[in-house]
Design a protein around this nucleic acid. Structure first.
Lengths: 207, 207
DNA sequence: ACCTGAACACCGTTCAAGT
DNA sequence: ACCTGAACACCGTTCAAGT
């Protein structure tokens, strides 16, 4: 009496929907037609909306599987490599991940809403597990934040046309564009302004 | 006999369309409804398609105005500031630009197609005008490319939720995430690999 | 309980018909 | 020449009706 056959059907429909969604999204990206997904799963559109009331709920469900794999890999890296290298290797993985399915990964990484399937929290735990040691080791800036890594990574993934460009952008980001930290002229007190967020626009600053 | 009144009408419709597009895109972003734009311009949808056969053509037209301003500012900065500072100030401007209209700027900066209104070429000229001097001065990496700047900039704009986050990400990108260039263990010859683009994947990394 | 699929308002795009 | 706007196929979303 605990599990009804009707429930089994619902469960089966959910699985069909999810499988179809993975296929269609892989082909068409995160804006794929929901009706098409329902059609390919062999159910009516209403059934899709019953299981996934909003598009992001469906995307999050697809995203979860990949996220699990990403966490496993993070553990492996934390054990196999020195902290700094582990973090960088994982960032590389994160970028590859964000580039799959026409940017579904990046979209899910950046979206703060859809708290129901909170991928963001899981991601944060994993990232902190790698970031902390790397910072203590001194191979990475101490003021780095989880959000910094996610945003820089997602940005690179969205802007890069292919994995080669992505790798290039990652290396630039790790090493920085500047050659030195000296502000051209004498020692203005402006060296540290970078960390404070907004900086005065250079308007009347002539010659 | 050179200019017909009919032409004046066509011209006027184009202007109406463009003005409406600027409004609607500012409100709804680059995926705004084309029918809605035509409606607000007071013309039929067919007229819109006559003047702008593809969505990107319309977006490019909207983009052109802002691009012109961006070029003017670049000239001003090149004259008023030392090369390194001018480049950075302009990058900041580029990011702000890429964040307007719900990401229209970033989309146009990254899209290589739609060669008709080649914003990309204009942008490239301006960027090179600032990048070259900054590199000769030595304040910025010598191997930096125009594409690097555009992609990093567009990536930051797309990933940042607000201008404060964007400024933070820009500063991180300028200075780099790493604290030092030493590869953890002894002096492998790997210090310079960052500049070569693709780097060997860390051994057993599959998938 | 869960599913269905017709129905609604909208979209992008086209094209015969007008002027 | 240029414009119109009805028309087509599609979309996201809902909801009475079924089982």
């Amino acid at each position: 009496m605990q599990t009804r056959s009707i429930r089994a059907d619902a469960r089966r429909n959910r699985d069909l929907l999810l499988a179809a969604a993975m296929d269609v999204i892989a082909e068409e990206g995160p804006n794929a037609s929901l009706n098409e997904i329902a059609r390919r799963a062999g159910v009516g559109p209403g059934t899709l909306y019953r299981h996934f009331p909003a598009r992001d709920a469906l995307l999050a469900a697809v995203f979860e599987g990949r996220l699990a794999r990403l966490c496993t890999r993070a553990e492996e890296m934390a054990e196999a490599l020195p902290p700094g290298e582990a973090l960088i290797a994982w960032l590389r993985l994160l970028i590859a991940h964000a580039m799959t399915d026409h940017g579904l990964g990046a979209r899910m990484m950046l979206t703060t809403s859809s708290a129901e399937a909170d991928c963001s929290a899981t991601l944060r735990d994993v990232a902190d597990r790698l970031l902390g040691p790397a910072q203590r080791e001194g191979s990475v800036r101490a003021d780095l934040d989880f959000a910094d890594l996610v945003e820089l990574t997602a940005g690179i993934a969205q802007a890069a046309a292919d994995p080669v460009r992505a790798e290039r952008l990652l290396m630039l980001t790790l090493d920085g564009l500047r050659t030195a930290a000296e502000p051209t002229a004498g020692a203005l007190g402006a060296v540290e302004t970078g960390t404070t967020g907004r900086v005065a626009t250079p308007r009347q600053e002539r010659e």
